[in-house]
Protein backbone atom coordinates (compact mmCIF):
# COMPACT_ATOMS: atom_id res chain seq x y z
CA UNK A 1 0.00 0.00 0.00
CA UNK A 2 2.75 2.40 1.01
CA UNK A 3 4.88 1.71 -2.06
CA UNK A 4 1.81 1.83 -4.33
CA UNK A 5 1.02 5.32 -3.03
CA UNK A 6 4.66 6.29 -3.60
CA UNK A 7 4.44 5.35 -7.28
CA UNK A 8 1.12 7.20 -7.66
CA UNK A 9 2.55 10.38 -6.15
CA UNK A 10 5.84 10.05 -8.05
CA UNK A 11 4.04 9.58 -11.36
CA UNK A 12 1.77 12.53 -10.63
CA UNK A 13 4.79 14.71 -9.77
CA UNK A 14 6.67 13.81 -12.96
CA UNK A 15 3.57 14.14 -15.16
CA UNK A 16 2.60 17.55 -13.78
CA UNK A 17 6.21 18.75 -14.06
CA UNK A 18 6.24 17.76 -17.75
CA UNK A 19 2.96 19.65 -18.22
CA UNK A 20 4.41 22.66 -16.36
CA UNK A 21 7.25 22.88 -18.83
CA UNK A 22 5.25 22.18 -21.99
CA UNK A 23 2.05 24.25 -21.80
CA UNK A 24 2.08 27.66 -23.47
CA UNK A 25 0.20 29.77 -20.95
CA UNK A 26 2.36 30.70 -17.90
CA UNK A 27 -0.73 30.68 -15.63
CA UNK A 28 -1.39 27.02 -16.47
CA UNK A 29 2.30 26.35 -15.86
CA UNK A 30 1.97 27.79 -12.35
CA UNK A 31 -1.15 25.71 -11.65
CA UNK A 32 0.54 22.49 -12.80
CA UNK A 33 3.55 23.38 -10.67
CA UNK A 34 1.32 23.66 -7.59
CA UNK A 35 0.09 20.14 -8.41
CA UNK A 36 3.68 18.96 -8.77
CA UNK A 37 4.64 20.41 -5.37
CA UNK A 38 1.55 18.89 -3.73
CA UNK A 39 2.44 15.46 -5.15
CA UNK A 40 6.00 15.89 -3.85
CA UNK A 41 4.54 16.69 -0.43
CA UNK A 42 2.77 13.31 -0.61
CA UNK A 43 6.13 11.64 -1.33
CA UNK A 44 7.57 13.48 1.70
CA UNK A 45 4.83 12.05 3.94
CA UNK A 46 5.63 8.53 2.72
CA UNK A 47 9.30 9.13 3.57
CA UNK A 48 8.44 10.14 7.18
CA UNK A 49 8.99 13.89 6.67
CA UNK A 50 5.63 15.06 8.04
CA UNK A 51 6.61 18.60 9.06
CA UNK A 52 8.38 19.19 5.76
CA UNK A 53 5.34 18.01 3.80
CA UNK A 54 3.32 20.70 5.62
CA UNK A 55 6.01 23.31 4.98
CA UNK A 56 6.13 22.27 1.33
CA UNK A 57 2.39 22.87 0.91
CA UNK A 58 2.34 26.11 2.95
CA UNK A 59 5.51 27.77 1.66
CA UNK A 60 6.05 26.32 -1.81
CA UNK A 61 2.56 25.58 -3.11
CA UNK A 62 1.10 28.46 -1.08
CA UNK A 63 3.41 31.45 -0.75
CA UNK A 64 5.96 31.06 -3.55
CA UNK A 65 3.47 30.05 -6.23
CA UNK A 66 1.11 32.91 -5.29
CA UNK A 67 4.12 35.21 -5.77
CA UNK A 68 4.70 33.70 -9.21
CA UNK A 69 1.03 34.08 -10.15
CA UNK A 70 1.01 37.72 -9.00
CA UNK A 71 4.04 38.53 -11.14
CA UNK A 72 2.58 36.70 -14.17
CA UNK A 73 -0.60 38.75 -13.85
CA UNK A 74 1.23 42.05 -13.26
CA UNK A 75 3.46 41.56 -16.28
CA UNK A 76 0.40 40.81 -18.46
CA UNK A 77 1.97 39.42 -21.57
CA UNK A 78 -0.82 40.37 -23.98
CA UNK A 79 -0.29 36.95 -25.63
CA UNK A 80 2.53 38.25 -27.77
CA UNK A 81 5.29 36.29 -26.07
CA UNK A 82 3.31 33.17 -25.25
CA UNK A 83 5.76 30.77 -26.81
CA UNK A 84 5.84 27.08 -26.11
CA UNK A 85 8.61 24.59 -25.64
CA UNK A 86 11.39 24.54 -28.20
CA UNK A 87 13.11 21.17 -28.32
CA UNK A 88 16.80 21.91 -28.10
CA UNK A 89 19.32 19.08 -28.69
CA UNK A 90 21.76 20.59 -26.18
CA UNK A 91 19.19 20.49 -23.39
CA UNK A 92 18.32 16.87 -24.17
CA UNK A 93 22.04 16.02 -24.28
CA UNK A 94 22.63 17.68 -20.89
CA UNK A 95 19.64 15.97 -19.28
CA UNK A 96 20.53 12.61 -20.84
CA UNK A 97 24.13 12.85 -19.63
CA UNK A 98 22.91 13.72 -16.15
CA UNK A 99 20.52 10.76 -16.06
CA UNK A 100 23.19 8.32 -17.32
CA UNK A 101 25.65 9.53 -14.67
CA UNK A 102 22.96 9.27 -11.99
CA UNK A 103 22.14 5.73 -13.15
CA UNK A 104 25.80 4.76 -12.77
CA UNK A 105 25.91 6.34 -9.31
CA UNK A 106 22.75 4.47 -8.22
CA UNK A 107 24.27 1.25 -9.56
CA UNK A 108 27.34 1.76 -7.41
CA UNK A 109 25.27 2.43 -4.31
CA UNK A 110 25.87 -0.05 -1.54
CA UNK A 111 22.95 -1.97 -0.05
CA UNK A 112 20.63 0.54 1.59
CA UNK A 113 20.28 0.13 5.32
CA UNK A 114 16.82 0.93 6.60
CA UNK A 115 17.19 3.03 9.70
CA UNK A 116 15.83 2.11 13.07
CA UNK A 117 12.20 3.07 13.43
CA UNK A 118 11.92 6.25 15.45
CA UNK A 119 8.48 7.25 16.66
CA UNK A 120 9.48 10.93 16.59
CA UNK A 121 10.74 10.85 12.98
CA UNK A 122 9.69 13.92 11.00
CA UNK A 123 7.77 15.54 13.84
CA UNK A 124 8.29 19.21 14.73
CA UNK A 125 9.72 18.09 18.08
CA UNK A 126 12.70 16.16 16.72
CA UNK A 127 13.31 18.58 13.84
CA UNK A 128 13.26 21.63 16.14
CA UNK A 129 15.63 19.97 18.59
CA UNK A 130 18.16 19.31 15.81
CA UNK A 131 17.63 22.72 14.22
CA UNK A 132 18.13 24.71 17.43
CA UNK A 133 21.03 22.69 18.86
CA UNK A 134 23.34 21.50 16.11
CA UNK A 135 22.32 23.98 13.41
CA UNK A 136 21.96 27.31 15.26
CA UNK A 137 24.62 29.14 13.22
CA UNK A 138 23.23 28.10 9.79
CA UNK A 139 19.76 29.00 11.08
CA UNK A 140 20.91 32.53 11.95
CA UNK A 141 22.69 32.77 8.60
CA UNK A 142 19.45 31.87 6.80
CA UNK A 143 17.58 34.51 8.77
CA UNK A 144 20.16 37.12 7.67
CA UNK A 145 19.78 35.87 4.08
CA UNK A 146 16.01 36.34 4.25
CA UNK A 147 16.51 39.86 5.67
CA UNK A 148 18.90 40.67 2.81
CA UNK A 149 16.34 39.32 0.32
CA UNK A 150 13.61 41.55 1.82
CA UNK A 151 15.86 44.63 1.59
CA UNK A 152 16.90 43.77 -1.97
CA UNK A 153 13.29 43.29 -3.03
CA UNK A 154 12.26 46.66 -1.59
CA UNK A 155 15.17 48.50 -3.22
CA UNK A 156 14.68 46.85 -6.61
CA UNK A 157 10.93 47.35 -6.72
CA UNK A 158 11.02 51.06 -5.81
CA UNK A 159 9.72 53.13 -8.69
CA UNK A 160 12.58 55.19 -10.03
CA UNK A 161 12.03 58.93 -9.92
CA UNK A 162 13.64 62.09 -11.31
CA UNK A 163 16.91 61.93 -13.20
CA UNK A 164 17.44 58.35 -12.11
CA UNK A 165 14.74 57.15 -14.50
CA UNK A 166 15.98 56.77 -18.00
Amino acid sequence: MESLLFYVFAGLAVLSTVLTLSVKNPVYSAIFMILSFAATAGVFVLLDAFLLATVQVLVYAGAIMVLFLFVIMMINLRNKEAEGLRISPFALLAAGTFLVLLGRAINDLGPAVGRRANELEGTPELLAETLFTGYVVPFEAVSMLLLAAILGTVVLSRRQTGEDAR
Binding site: T17, F68, L85
Partner: peptide, 19 residues
Protein backbone atom coordinates in the same frame (compact mmCIF):
# COMPACT_ATOMS: atom_id res chain seq x y z
CA UNK B 1 16.88 12.63 -10.79
CA UNK B 2 13.89 12.78 -13.15
CA UNK B 3 12.61 15.98 -11.51
CA UNK B 4 16.10 17.51 -11.67
CA UNK B 5 16.58 16.56 -15.34
CA UNK B 6 13.15 17.95 -16.25
CA UNK B 7 14.03 21.24 -14.53
CA UNK B 8 17.35 21.32 -16.38
CA UNK B 9 15.54 20.84 -19.72
CA UNK B 10 13.14 23.63 -18.75
CA UNK B 11 15.95 26.06 -17.95
CA UNK B 12 17.57 25.41 -21.31
CA UNK B 13 14.44 25.21 -23.47
CA UNK B 14 12.03 27.88 -22.25
CA UNK B 15 12.72 31.51 -23.14
CA UNK B 16 10.23 33.13 -20.74
CA UNK B 17 12.16 34.32 -17.68
CA UNK B 18 9.34 33.31 -15.29
CA UNK B 19 9.32 29.76 -16.69
Amino acid sequence: GLLFALGLCGVMMRRNVIL
